[in-house]
């Protein structure tokens, strides 16, 4: 798989571990309370599991397996790809900071995620094509 896909997928595996760890803390604490402030971790649990793990794995896999270009760089601009990776992951960390940092940080996180999604849409769009093109 290309290096960028490997980074997206490795990051998604790290978020899976972080998301499951936070989820385990929340669930165990709900059953046997040992950490009264645990609910503050819920936004990070949701963000890491849904966006960091599931969405990011899909992005990395799509970059890898969608049809390649026949001319020029096989998977489009590498610079755009790496920019989307950086923006997306910074966006996840900021969006997960609910309860820890002021709301403007979560807003900034969502904006960065949207910019990453836009860049990825630009990269993926021409690779969604019929056979022989």
């Amino acid at each position: 798989m290309p290096r960028l896909s490997a980074w997206f997928i490795r990051a998604s595996l790290i978020y899976l571990l972080m998301g499951f760890t936070l989820g385990a803390l929340l669930l165990a604490n709900n059953g046997v309370e040992f950490m009264p402030s645990a609910w503050a971790l819920l936004p990070a649990h949701v963000e890491f599991t849904l966006v960091g793990w599931i969405v990011q794995l899909a992005l990395g896999t799509a970059y890898w397996i969608l049809p390649r270009h026949t001319n020029g760089p096989a998977r489009g601009s590498l610079a755009l790809g790496w920019a989307s990776f950086g923006l997306f992951n910074l966006g996840i960390l900021l969006a997960a900071s609910s309860g820890l940092l002021p709301g403007t940080f979560q807003l900034a996180g969502r904006i960065l995620q949207m910019l990453a999604a836009g860049l990825l849409a630009v990269l993926f769009w021409p690779r969604v094509k019929a056979y022989g093109l």
């Binding site: 798989m1 290309p2 290096r3 490997a6 997928i9 490795r10 595996l13 899976l16 571990l17 998301g19 499951f20 760890t21 989820g23 385990a24 803390l25 929340l26 669930l27 165990a28 709900n30 059953g31 046997v32």
Partner: peptide, 30 residues
């Protein structure tokens, strides 16, 4: 019943960890 939830939490964490350990080495750059 609370301890059932704690056991569930531990099992899910083990599942995630086992999957990541088994998958990490298969994420290979070419």
């Amino acid at each position: 019943a609370g301890w059932l939830m704690a056991a569930s939490a531990l099992l899910l964490l083990i599942a995630g960890t086992a999957f990541v350990i088994n998958t990490w080495g298969r994420v290979k750059e070419k």
